[in-house]
């Protein structure tokens, strides 16, 4: 069983500032493993302990992200892969998903891809579904429990924890699943493994290594939405008068 965990490095807390171009300014803020990805990592490790095989931690980001990749290796991931290329710098979610999909295809033997339900910085929650689409694999979002992962029969049964219901879904493998918070209790890195992985070389693929030319969109710029027009408070001596005035205005503007 080969499980790939997509992991993003994010600023530790919500005190990040927003740059003038509306991008995130995380300068001076400690970088950590995205909270939801940490749950995905733990889940992968637990199933790996049961089923054997490999757990690859995969990130698309700059070299600094190796720090969290090492943390994942110290938690127990068996393999690592960093996708880093100057052309990846401004990828949007869809673009990133396409590149990661190409890399996963190139890895070849992947049975299951796990990721967090969203990152705690951009919070789009679109990466998992976009990746599944790019791979052409089933997507299972908001997974709160893996009931069965069957390597031999190439199938998996999970609970999707939705807002108003828990949905039990069976799917074939390979598949992409995103996990919610508290699905498990992520372990701390093991000190013995820390010693082993501290100096290990993290395999890195650039665009040429990933191969397939991903025609990805990139973020060209960000502008704030136009400000909302100011509201108007309808005044009057009593409720009846206020309602009458309000109705007049609404009719005047042909709302009613």
């Amino acid at each position: 069983m080969h499980i790939v965990v997509c992991m993003k490095q994010v600023p530790r807390d919500n005190s990040v500032k927003i740059n003038n171009d509306l991008s995130i300014n995380a300068e001076g803020i400690e970088q950590i493993m995205n909270l939801f990805d940490e749950y995905a990592m733990e889940e992968a490790l637990q199933w790996n302990e049961k089923l054997g095989g490999k757990v690859t931690v995969l990130s698309l980001g700059p070299d600094e992200w190796k720090e969290q990749i090492r943390r994942a290796l110290a938690m127990g991931a068996t393999d690592a892969l960093l996708l880093n290329d100057p052309s990846y710098a401004n990828l949007d979610v869809l673009g990133a998903a396409k590149v990661v999909a190409d890399a996963i295809k190139k890895l070849g033997d992947v049975d299951l891809v796990l990721a967090g339900r969203n990152s705690t910085d951009d919070e789009s929650g679109a990466f998992g579904p976009a990746l599944a689409r790019a791979l052409g694999w089933p997507q299972l979002t908001y997974v709160g429990k893996f009931l069965e992962v069957n390597d031999g029969a190439k199938k998996m049964v999970v609970e999707r924890h939705l807002e108003e219901q828990v949905e039990t879904v069976e799917t074939s493998l390979p598949a992409v699943a995103t996990v919610v918070k508290d699905i498990n209790e992520p372990r701390y890195p093991s000190l013995l493994r820390i010693k082993k992985v501290a100096k290990v070389e993290i395999p890195t693929w650039g665009a040429a290594d990933v191969g397939a030319a991903s025609s990805a969109a990139s973020v060209a710029g960000r502008v704030p939405p136009p400000p909302r027009p100011k509201g108007e408070i309808v005044d009057g001596a009593d409720a009846a008068e206020k309602v009458r005035k309000l109705v007049d205005k609404l009719m005047e503007n042909q709302v009613i």
């Binding site: 890195p189 000190l191 820390i194 100096k199």
Partner: peptide, 9 residues
């Protein structure tokens, strides 16, 4: 790096 990973843990 070993000490850094340890410190974070």
């Amino acid at each position: 790096e070993e000490h850094e990973l340890l410190r974070k843990t």
